[in-house]
């Protein structure tokens, strides 16, 4: 039996979750809305060119986040320092905040592209931003609730 004292890494668990959450949001945005549904456009010519910078940073940041988040999570696991509920908290928070940022700032303020074209946008915008806000709230609730690291289960203590 390995006796290395594993200190639960709460902060790192949240960080891994946030990165994976942001990455999943960006991945869904890219695959589902751009590639599968073709609701989003590569570039719709209506937005400010400055918006391209924001778009570029978030496209690159999205996949970078998921790669780094997964490696961080694997590292926590091999050190048996994961706090699973904090990972979930971070995940919901990361996904929700990214979704709202994309929905309010990138779509509306920068006018980068819209969720869908030639339809009444209001229900789409509401669904998009409310789902994101709900995700963020779930994340905050999980963050404040009780949590236990995987290393220390009641049966493991003796």
């Amino acid at each position: 039996m390995d006796t290395t004292a594993t200190r639960p890494a709460t902060g790192r668990s949240v960080l891994a979750g946030v990165l994976i959450g942001v990455g999943v949001a960006a991945f869904l945005d890219e695959t589902v809305f751009h590639q599968l549904l073709h609701w989003h456009h590569f570039y719709d010519g209506a937005g400010l060119e400055a918006g391209l910078v924001s778009d570029g940073v978030f496209h690159a940041g999205g996949w970078l986040a998921i790669v780094v988040g997964l490696f961080l999570f694997a590292d926590l696991h091999r050190r048996r320092a994961t706090v699973p509920k904090r990972v979930w908290a971070g995940g919901f928070l990361g996904w929700g905040v990214f979704q709202v940022y994309d929905g309010l700032f990138q779509h509306k303020v920068l006018g980068l592209h819209q969720i869908r074209y030639e339809v009444d946008l209001l229900p789409y915008d509401l669904a998009w931003n409310i789902s994101g806000a709900v995700g963020a709230v779930v994340g905050i609730v999980l963050l404040l609730g009780p949590a236990r690291p995987i290393g220390v289960r009641p049966g493991d203590e003796a």
Partner: peptide, 20 residues
């Protein structure tokens, strides 16, 4: 990671500028 993010974002922005 910051270096990779800057270069990758720069590459994405360049491709979209070429497109636009």
């Amino acid at each position: 990671l910051v270096l990779l993010l800057v270069v990758a974002a720069g590459h994405d922005v360049l491709a979209k500028l070429m497109y636009a």
